[in-house]
Simulated scan of single mutants.
Amino acid sequence: MARRTKTEAAATREALLDAAEAIFLERGVARTSLEQIARQAGMTRGAVYWHFRNKADLFQAMLQRVRMPFQELVEEIGDPSLAERPLEAIRQACQRGFERLELPRYRRVHAILLHHCETFAEIDPLAMQNEMADDALGALRDYFLCAAHLGQLREDTSPEIAARLMQAMLSGLFHDWLRNHERYALREHGMSLVEAQLRLLMRSSPPFR
Rank of each mutant, 00 (worst) to 15 (best):
I23K: 12
W50F: 14
A168N: 12
E14D: 11
N54C: 05
L16R: 03
E118D: 07
Y106F: 15
A139V: 08
A196Q: 06
L103V: 09
C117K: 02
L82G: 02
E14P: 01
I161V: 15
A168Y: 03
A83R: 13
E26R: 15
F208C: 04
Y184M: 08
R27V: 10
A20C: 12
R107K: 13
A168P: 03
A10E: 14
H149D: 12
N180A: 14
H115T: 02
A89C: 03
L16F: 14
D176A: 08
R203V: 02
N130D: 15
M132Y: 11
G97D: 07
S171F: 04
H189F: 05
M43Y: 05
L193T: 01
F70I: 11
L101N: 08
T5D: 14
Q129C: 08
M166I: 15
R108W: 11
E188C: 04
L140G: 07
M128G: 12
L25E: 07
R4A: 14
D176M: 03
Q64R: 05
E75W: 04
P125L: 09
G172L: 05
L25A: 13
A89T: 01
M1N: 10
L73E: 01
R53P: 08
G190A: 00
F24Y: 14
E155S: 11
A9F: 11
E26N: 03
L25V: 03
A19R: 01
L150C: 06
Y184C: 05
E131V: 06
L153T: 08
E188D: 10
Q36Y: 04
A163E: 09
R100Y: 14
H181F: 04
F24H: 02
R183S: 13
A9C: 10
A41G: 09
L17F: 01
A20N: 08
A111Q: 15
T119K: 11
E35F: 06
T7H: 11
S205Q: 14
R13P: 00
L186Y: 01
A15Y: 04
L103I: 10
A15N: 08
M1Q: 12
P125S: 03
M202A: 00
R4C: 05
E21Q: 14
A61M: 07
W50T: 13
A111Y: 08
V194I: 09
A20K: 00
L200I: 00
P86D: 01
L114C: 08
A136C: 14
R67M: 14
L153R: 06
V48C: 05
D142G: 06
A185I: 06
P80N: 04
L114R: 13
L178Y: 00
V109Y: 08
Q64D: 15
A11L: 09
Y49A: 05
P69A: 10
D156L: 00
F98K: 00
T119P: 14
F59W: 06
